[in-house]
């Protein structure tokens, strides 16, 4: 599902953000990617979204070689990868329903399908009742649920989460993680980049630890490894 083969990425002439990284993530896995600032986590996410191309090595996502992907094919590729961010990135001038429908609208889903899919997705994330609310009327946890609904409404096989609990209190963080676990249980491959050691240690999932652009640990049921 996700393969990195000896991938390096350097910006300008500085030290490489990723250095000879190889990685396999199978379909249906739940993976934490942890590490301190500068470890290369964000670069990894950007490579997986084809926002960047590697300096060397190959990246495969959903059986697509991203270094060979033509510019005009990028939108189609991205429809197969849902993504949520720490800062939610919701459209503030639109309500919950419109934010989720937006994801279907711009990939040109039929209106009938949008009217069916959006309420179903909002029910799944527990926000069916708040479909008319604007983002500013919601708590952080609720906003992240809307972001999750938007990321999943096009039914991507992969979900990338970049610090999804970074702006949330512990209670909301746990609720989001439970939701991600449920999404994973339904078959979506989930990759979570996080600093939240408590959650990582408690969930007992695969944990890939990065440090200064390299993978230093990859454990099937791992915990958060702190830098010395």
């Amino acid at each position: 599902m996700i393969i990195l083969d000896k991938v390096s990425k350097a910006y300008n002439k500085g030290a490489p953000a990723l250095n000879d990284v190889s990685l396999h993530i199978e379909k249906g896995e739940f993976v934490f990617i942890v590490g301190d600032s500068g470890a290369g986590k964000s670069t990894l996410i950007r490579l997986l979204l084809r926002e960047e191309i590697p300096t060397s090595g190959k990246v495969f996502v959903n059986n697509t070689d991203l270094s060979k992907l033509k510019h005009r094919k990028i939108p189609i590729f991205r429809r197969g990868v849902g993504v949520v961010f720490q800062d939610f990135r919701l459209l503030k001038d639109r309500n919950v329903y419109e934010n989720v429908a937006f994801a279907q609208l711009i990939v040109q889903k039929p209106a009938k399908e949008i009217r069916r899919n959006v309420p179903a997705m909002l029910s799944m994330v527990g926000l069916a009742e708040k479909y008319k609310a604007r983002p500013k009327e919601l708590s952080g946890g609720e906003q992240q649920r809307v972001a999750l609904a938007r990321a999943l409404v096009n039914r991507p096989p992969i979900l990338l989460c970049d610090e999804p609990t970074g702006n949330l209190d512990p209670k909301n963080s746990w609720e989001i993680m439970k939701l991600l676990e449920e999404i994973n249980r339904r078959g979506t491959t989930v990759v979570v980049v996080t600093h939240n050691s408590e959650i990582v240690n408690a969930m007992q999932k695969r944990v890939i630890t990065m440090r200064r652009g390299v993978i230093v640990s990859d454990e099937k049921k791992g915990g958060y490894i702190y830098e010395d």
């Binding site: 005009r72 939108p75 991205r78 459209l91 937006f102 711009i106 990939v107 040109q108 096009n154």
Partner: peptide, 17 residues
């Protein structure tokens, strides 16, 4: 800018953006 960035990430084509 923000909306365009989201559109791109979700998979909107050049034409739609």
């Amino acid at each position: 800018k923000e909306e365009i960035a989201i559109m791109k990430l979700i998979g909107a084509t050049d034409f739609v953006v």
